[in-house]
Amino acid sequence: MAELQGLGAELSEAEKAGVEIVAVSPDPNERSHTMAEGLHLGYRFLADRDLAVCRRYGLIHAHGGPNGEDVPRPATVVLDRDGVVRWMSLSNNFQVRPDPGDVLRAVRTL
């Protein structure tokens, strides 16, 4: 979650209105909702319970979960207004996430 908070902190109010931050995880809706309210970030939390979207996107870390279950491969993807991928960052170490500054630079070039 740290990267989500970082992203929100660096976005000005004007930018928050101009960009949609969509966070996808297998977390159930109730948990995401609690988190979304707690963070006050205006993100959309979408629940990919069975990882169908992660699988379709090819973003699966097989058996990467604490109990050996499949989990999403941490990824940040910037889409332009036409839904075209303009920038992405796929992590090779789940401790490492893109710097929010880099994500915002990619958004600002659109």
């Binding site: 809706n29 948990r31 959309r44 979408l46 990824a75 993807v77 910037v78 889409l79």
Partner: peptide, 24 residues
């Protein structure tokens, strides 16, 4: 988070989107 279905296509032609996939 409220159970309403959201489709990626809703934002097309409107806003850039930052998609963040995380482990939860």
């Amino acid at each position: 988070a409220t159970g309403r279905p959201v489709s990626l296509a809703e934002f097309r032609g409107k806003k850039p989107v930052v998609l963040v996939f995380y482990r939860g």
